[in-house]
Amino acid sequence: MNPRRKKRLTIIVSIITAIGVITGLVLYALSQNIDLFYTPSEIINGKDDSGIKPIIGQRIRVGGLVVPGSVKRDPDNLKVQFDLTNKGEMIRVKYDGILPDLFREGQGIIANGILTESRLLTASEVLAKHDENYMPKEIAESLGEGHKIPEYSEEQLNNKY
């Protein structure tokens, strides 16, 4: 390789390395802001690396698994409450609205709302997180992973407003 090419090669490689290091440090510093949601254990115990906890009255997103058997729906309207869990901690979520089709017990959910008590989130939006596993119904049933879309009666929908 002739010296001019060698020089250009060193310049380019060092520029890219420098930019890579800078971006790496910036992302590392911002990592808590890049996280889309808090998990229930992070709300109770703080983030793993920084120990930051949300304060009561703060608007946050919580992501966790819906605890089986915890979903309680009001038969007259759209009000619903359920518990989200991870790593043994639990957060109760209250929500008034239509749940996404993928909502079910054991499913990963992200709720966006205000932390009204230390373990209670009053949600204004509930999003369903689906995992990266895809399979046909028959296989899912043989694994015991059936899915039922949440249904609403006419009366429940009418009482919304």
Binding site: G63, K129, H130, E132
Partner: peptide
Amino acid sequence: EWWNTLHQGQT
């Protein structure tokens, strides 16, 4: 993998 996201992991 690095952050909490709504997007699912790699299939």
